[in-house]
Amino acid sequence: MEWLTSPFEVGFVARALWGGLLVSAICGLAGTWVVLRGMAFMSDAMSHGMLPGVAVAALLGGNLLLGAALSALAMAFGITALSRSKRLSQDTGIGLLFVGMLAAGVIIVSRSQSFAVDLTGFLFGDVLSVQHADLVVLGCALAAAVLIAAACHRSFVALAFDRRKAATLGLRPGLAQGLMVGLLTLAIAASFHVVGTLLVFGLLIAPPAAMALWADRIPVIMAGAALLGGAATAGGLLASWHLGTAAGATIAALAVASFFASALAALVRDRLPLRPTVEPKGP
């Protein structure tokens, strides 16, 4: 069993594992609402729409996390503003901002001397370079995500299933929507500089979607998504160590593979005939 444990005895791999576990927990909390609300396209746009803020922060020598958060918030406000138009669907607004922000980010990054390296790091991250300071940031982000998810759970549930009923109950669906987007922004901004936008998006969507096929209760979906994401992280790091593949991409691939495995198993489950009930015999 040495091949199973020896990689995690190395310091940078152990830190990568802890970083991936924290990201999985954060994404499990936020990603569950993304799946239930059908916000996958929006979350993808926000994760890639952070590039202008990150690029400006990098060129000015500023804080990348702050730049990412401001850029993601700008995306969220822009999507909200465009979605109020009666002539444009929300998907149209998201698509326009997605392409515009991504193009602006690439233009800004192209002004630097390390264009290819910077853009690759933005997309795929470098999970093997996680430092103790990154773990502290992720730990704080997880604590904040737990507080938001717990405090707003009732409002989020009402918003996810019936917006009009949420308004009738006085749960302020507009505020709940803003806090949900804030939770999503927190998950993306806190995690991207460690694991890249593709891995964040993979852990944000795939594990909750896989669990949603098997669980009806939202807390169960969140917990299961965190466990699946953690398993994908550990398995991806292990495979990367022994096969020499890119760690971040391997983790993302395993996370997506877990969804397809879950979907296949659910399909088999749904096609199996129900076990007939045995009628009790009379005396």
Rank of each mutant, 00 (worst) to 15 (best):
A69P: 04
L70W: 01
S71F: 06
S71C: 09
A72W: 04
A76Q: 02
F77L: 15
F77T: 12
G78I: 07
I79D: 02
T80Q: 14
A81N: 09
L82R: 11
R87L: 13
S89L: 07
Q90V: 01
D91S: 10
T92F: 04
G93S: 13
I94V: 15
G95V: 02
G95M: 03
L96P: 00
L97N: 10
L97Y: 08
M101V: 10
A103I: 08
A103T: 14
A104C: 14
V106C: 05
I107D: 08
R111P: 00
S112P: 01
Q113V: 09
Q113P: 05
V117H: 13
V117I: 12
L119Q: 10
L119T: 05
L119C: 06
G121I: 04
F122S: 11
F124N: 11
V127S: 01
V130W: 05
H132G: 10
H132C: 11
H132W: 13
A133R: 15
A133P: 03
D134Y: 03
L135N: 10
G139I: 01
G139Q: 03
L142A: 07
A144G: 00
L147E: 02
L147P: 02
A150W: 13
A150Q: 08
H153N: 03
R154E: 07
R154A: 12
S155F: 03
S155G: 15
